[in-house]
């Protein structure tokens, strides 16, 4: 690792002020520290959100849940509130990485990082979540901008993420057998405003909505409704793990499984 300074943030305002220029926020560190160890980044300073208790916790609100940015994956996975309001979200959190990663990694860090194979972005987009920051509220549709890119500005700190409860939802992840990240992950949600389908792991530009699936499932919410819908491999990733064609195939298989498992 290159050397850097370290500062514990005393408040969100403090963190927002410090995290400008070459300084970087650190939450659970499960993405940032491996990146630093490989010398893929060289921040001047790490501003640790670790002590900020008001960013930790889960509140049931209006049928949905609001999750503080520093809430760990393990806490989301085992939360009675999340299991009741959105069981698919608790199950998604339980499937991230391994137990030690889930004990440190946070929802805010995962969403801010927007790894094209991360799980939470698919949940945010499919459930129509709102990302709450130190400055404003951003809808998930506007938040995720591309590979590792988000709407976050310099010095903007995610404080919480609000998920409205769907009528039914499920997430199905086809894991990369080595890294266990999503080779393809599909989150399907039947909401009051219609069906929303978000795909992670597959797109060249990160998480995306699959509108043709949403239309077909809007007419009939059953896996078989997707039988006749074609998935184009254009715009999908091709790498040593899977070709774009294979990913296109998996998107449909995972979506059908998610629809059939939705509750």
């Amino acid at each position: 690792m290159y050397s850097f300074e370290y500062q514990k943030a005393g408040s969100v305002a403090d963190a927002a002020k410090a995290a400008t220029g070459e300084a970087k926020l650190v939450a659970g560190g499960m993405t940032l520290i491996p990146t630093l160890k490989l010398r893929l980044a060289q921040p001047s300073k790490l501003v640790d959100l670790g002590g900020l208790k008001d960013l930790v916790g889960i509140k049931a609100e209006g049928g949905g849940v609001t999750i503080g940015a520093m809430t760990t994956h393990a806490a989301v996975a085992s939360s009675a509130e999340v299991k009741k309001a959105i069981p698919a979200l608790a199950a998604l959190a339980a499937g991230i990485g391994d137990p030690a990663v889930r004990n440190r990694g946070t929802i805010g860090g995962s969403v801010a990082n927007n790894d094209p194979a991360a799980d939470y972005p698919a949940a945010c987009v499919a459930l129509g979540a709102t990302i709450v920051t130190s400055k404003r509220k951003i809808t998930a549709d506007d938040f995720f901008k591309g590979l590792f890119e988000t709407a976050l500005e310099e010095g903007e700190v995610i404080t919480a993420i609000s998920f409205p409860a769907p009528e039914k939802a499920a997430y199905m992840k086809f894991r990369n057998p080595a890294s266990r990240y999503a080779l393809v992950g599909v989150f399907v949600a039947k909401t009051k405003g219609g069906v929303r389908v978000a795909v992670t792991g597959a797109g060249e530009g990160g998480v995306f909505r699959k509108k043709s699936f949403e239309e077909a499932l809007g007419k009939s919410f059953a896996g078989s409704a997707l039988d006749g819908v074609k998935v184009d491999a254009k715009g999908l990733n091709s790498d040593i793990h899977a070709s774009a064609d294979y990913r296109a195939h998996l998107i449909k298989v995972m979506a059908k499984r998610a629809v059939d498992a939705a509750k």
């Binding site: 370290y6 514990k8 650190v26 560190g29 499960m30 520290i33 491996p34 160890k37 790490l46 640790d48 670790g50 030690a100 990663v101 004990n103 440190r104």
Partner: peptide, 10 residues
């Protein structure tokens, strides 16, 4: 936790 992925300061 993985002690290789946490700073001593944390």
């Amino acid at each position: 936790v993985k002690s290789c992925t946490m700073l001593a300061a944390q």
